[in-house]
Nucleic acid binder design. Structure first.
Lengths: 250, 250
DNA sequence: CGCGAAGTTGATCGGACTCAACGCCCGTGG
DNA sequence: CCACGGGCGTTGAGTCCGATCAACTTCGCG
């Protein structure tokens, strides 16, 4: 068996067994307590929820859910950044969503996972047994409506991404992505940061924006030559002119 | 005031007043009773829901919700087909979703409508007052979880669309759209029809797939020349080789 | 030091966009 | 009745952006 496949099997086992690094849930100091699907549960309900979930950590690059696996678990992201990956028939990766903290992953109400879920940074998740989570959602309307609210947020994000990808040049798409990442990295959406550590490789950016990797490289060069950004090393960029960058992004 | 703007204002008034053609809800013979967000309500809850909604019809091309309007209503689609439209800064239309019967529209939990909702065919909707609908969702877990289930379905559709639009040629995208429309028009997803009446204009197809209108025209020509489809008039096509068409679509 | 992975840069090619002309259908008005 | 015009779709010619192929650099790591 080739080395890489062994690794994959290894990871599957770990996540299937709900990895040994997991801990009991500590809702008191949960960083997304106010925005996650479970936000409006009362203490009693939250105690119930705690019994079916674990606090689990993943390293950068680790696969959390595999496409086509039975959908046995679901999770709320506490810290870090995830990608949802779709693959075409030739196995080419296409990223269909980025999941930020408070985001929800796992295909509820569906038999199989449709997309692969991978950690782009070290990530911490609130991992639940899916059948029992669905069961709780059908008993507690607070959880169900929190879930609906979450799904609506993700839905709007997905549709905004569709609007961004369709029509418009590579430069504009890249600008839009940088603006979004800067917003997400900042303390609040209205105060984006100017020093940005990219959580995505060039290849991943390409897979997200629907262009190829060389084009991404060139557009970084263009943006830099025009003074909008500055590259420092491979993964960090300084945003010099957020004004014009946002204008490009639309 | 130019003629066209007058029309728009007219429509806004109509839909704001919940148009005179509306009727009381008749859940007994609802065509999407088994799949809509309200599917698992009991009789008592359904009776409650009936009091806050109306059965409304729209003609082809009519706007149901306007972008940036206060999100005062929401709806389940009973019959017909809708499009969700995003516009860039120059007003260019980009379609971010097609809504099929049992689909849900209206931005719950958000202050404003983000996208414009337009009827592509004559359409019938179950239209609700949004605050009261949200209120019911927070009281009845069956409605909330139905809503969550619906949102999850739309979310998967949106992500599948992202996967389809990013990367791949115009011909493949068009093939994928035709296959999807054929499936949707058939009695069940596994039995697509071979005679298809397109609910979208060339311009709309272009806005959905993220290519321009002339390219769509040309690719129709290519598919026809290769014997996969046949055009009959402007809006209907015959699918001669669903096998190869699906293969193209991936 | 050497190796491989990741990123950049250059040259070339091709598919999609742009611009323009034309055909078709249909409603309107003379 | 036909003439006209506008909306929609098709077709063609030329251009350009991004994909492809290939070489090279940089980085990280044994």
């Amino acid at each position: 068996m080739p080395r890489i496949e062994q690794d994959i099997v290894q990871k599957r086992c770990y996540s299937g067994l709900m990895r040994s690094e997991s801990h009991a849930l500590q809702c008191e100091n949960c960083p997304v307590r106010d925005r996650a699907a479970c936000a409006s549960l009362d203490d009693e309900q939250r105690a119930q929820l705690r019994t079916i979930g674990r606090d689990v950590q993943y390293a950068t690059g680790e696969t959390i859910f595999h496409a086509d696996d039975a959908a046995a678990r679901c999770a709320t992201l506490l810290e870090g950044l995830l990608k949802l990956v779709d693959r075409d028939s030739e196995g080419v990766e296409r990223i269909v969503a980025l999941i930020h903290p408070a985001g929800f992953v796992g295909e509820l109400f569906a038999p199989f996972e449709r997309f692969e879920v991978v950690a782009l940074t070290p990530a911490r998740l609130c991992m639940f047994d899916r059948p029992r989570y669905e069961d709780m959602a059908s008993r507690y309307s607070e959880l169900a409506s929190g879930l609906a609210r979450r799904a609506m947020v993700h839905l709007e994000e997905a549709r905004a991404l569709i609007g961004m990808i369709g029509r418009r040049g590579a430069k504009e798409k890249l600008a839009a992505l940088l603006v979004e990442l800067a917003r997400a990295a900042g303390p609040s959406p209205c105060k984006p940061i100017d020093r940005l550590d990219l959580p995505l490789s060039r290849e991943e950016i390409a897979a997200l924006l629907g262009v190829n990797i060389e084009t991404i490289s060139r557009q970084f060069g263009v943006l830099e030559r025009e003074g909008l950004i500055e590259r420092q090393g491979l993964r960090t960029i300084i945003i010099h002119d957020m004004q014009r960058l946002s204008a490009l992004a639309d």
